[in-house]
C-alpha cells in the first residue's frame, strides 16, 4: 500500500547481471532531495568496474526526490542474487526487492524498512542498529551477525529481522540486541556468540545452537540436530511466548554456554527432541524439581 506522500522509484535491470553488484548508494537517504538526472548518475559497482545507475537500470520516478528520506520508497522491480549491499546504512524510508537479493542486505542499517520478496544470501542485517528487514524466501548465513574477528556483541544491535523461509548457519552470530524470527528451519550454530537479543526459529535447527553464547535467548520450535555438553539443563516449561509469538507446547530450558561463563537461555522444543531430551528430563526429576 503506498502512502499518499510517498515518492516511489522503480528500477528495472537492463540486462541480467553476471557478477556481484554493489548497490550501496541506492537508498532513500542518498536519493533524498536529488533530481532524477543526478540520481541516474549514482555510483554503482559492477564487480570491480565503477559505473552509474542508469548504465545498469532503467529508472522511473519523480523528477525531484523529497528531501525527507522517510517519504521515499525504492522498488527493485527485477531482483537478482547478485544485488549486494541493498539498504546499506539506511536510516529512513523503504526498499522493496521484487525478487532475489544478494549479500549484505541491510548491512549497518539504522532505520527504515527493507522487504525482499524472494531469497537473499549471506550477512542479511549484519551489524544492523535499528529498522525492519523482512525476507519472504530463504536467507544464507550470518543473519544479523558480525564480521569475522570482531568481538561478540558487534553483531546486530537493535531492530527486527523476519525470515519467512529458511535461514542458514550462525544466525545472529555475535548479536547484542534485537529480534530475529525465522519461520522455517535454521542451519548450524544458531545464535552462536550472542551476548543478548532474542532469536526464534519455528522450524528445525542444525547442530549446536547457542555455541559460545554469553547472554540473550534462543528458541528452537522444531528438531535440533545436536546439543553441546556445555549447556546445563535448567527447567521444563509447558509453553512459551516471545514477542507475541506463542508456542503452545513444552520446552526444555538450558543455561549456557558454560565454557565462556555464559548465562544465556536456550529453549528447545520437547516433543520433536524426545530422544535427545529424555535424559535431561530425568536429570531434572532427580533434582526433585517439579516437571
Amino acid at each position: 500500500m503506498i502512502e499518499l506522500s510517498t515518492a516511489t522509484y522503480s528500477l528495472y535491470f537492463k540486462t541480467k547481471p553476471m557478477v556481484l553488484i554493489d548497490a550501496r548508494h541506492l537508498t532513500p537517504d542518498e536519493f533524498a532531495g536529488k533530481k532524477l538526472t543526478v540520481i541516474k548518475n549514482t555510483v554503482i559497482r559492477e564487480g570491480g568496474r565503477k559505473t552509474s545507475l542508469s548504465e545498469l537500470f532503467d529508472i522511473e520516478g519523480p523528477e525531484v526526490a523529497p528531501s525527507d528520506p522517510a517519504q521515499i520508497t525504492i522498488i527493485f522491480e527485477t531482483g537478482s542474487n547478485k544485488l549486494c549491499f541493498i539498504g546499506y546504512k539506511m536510516s529512513k524510508g523503504k526498499i522493496i526487492v521484487k525478487g532475489d537479493a544478494g549479500h549484505l542486505v541491510g548491512y549497518k542499517m539504522k532505520g527504515g524498512s527493507i522487504l525482499v520478496e524472494g531469497n537473499a544470501r549471506d550477512y542479511v542485517g549484519a551489524k544492523m542498529r535499528d529498522g525492519t528487514i523482512e525476507i519472504r524466501g530463504n536467507v544464507g548465513h550470518r543473519l544479523g551477525g558480525k564480521l569475522l574477528g570482531e568481538k561478540p556483541g558487534k553483531g546486530m544491535r537493535g531492530g527486527t529481522i523476519i525470515v519467512h523461509g529458511n535461514a542458514g548457519s550462525e544466525i545472529g552470530v555475535g548479536m547484542e540486541k534485537g529480534f530475529i524470527l525465522v519461520e522455517g528451519n535454521a542451519g548450524n550454530l544458531t545464535g552462536s556468540d550472542i551476548i543478548g537479543g532474542s532469536i526464534v526459529v519455528k522450524g528445525d535447527s542444525g547442530i549446536y545452537p547457542g555455541a559460545g553464547m554469553i547472554g540473550g535467548r534462543i528458541i528452537i520450535g522444531g528438531r535440533v540436530e545436536a546439543l553441546l555438553p556445555s549447556f546445563y539443563v535448567d527447567s521444563f516449561i509447558p509453553s512459551i511466548s516471545v514477542k507475541g509469538i506463542k508456542f503452545d507446547k513444552p520446552f526444555m530450558v538450558f543455561l549456557g554456554d558454560v565454557v565462556v561463563g555464559g548465562k544465556g537461555l536456550l529453549y528447545l522444543s520437547y516433543n520433536e527432541n524426545t530422544g535427545l531430551l529424555e535424559y535431561y528430563r530425568s536429570l531434572i526429576e532427580e533434582r526433585g524439581v517439579e516437571v
Binding site: L147, L148, G149, E150
Partner: peptide, 8 residues
C-alpha cells in the same frame, strides 16, 4: 591475521 577488525 588476528586483527581483521583493524582493517575493516
Amino acid at each position: 591475521l588476528m586483527r581483521p577488525e583493524d582493517h575493516y
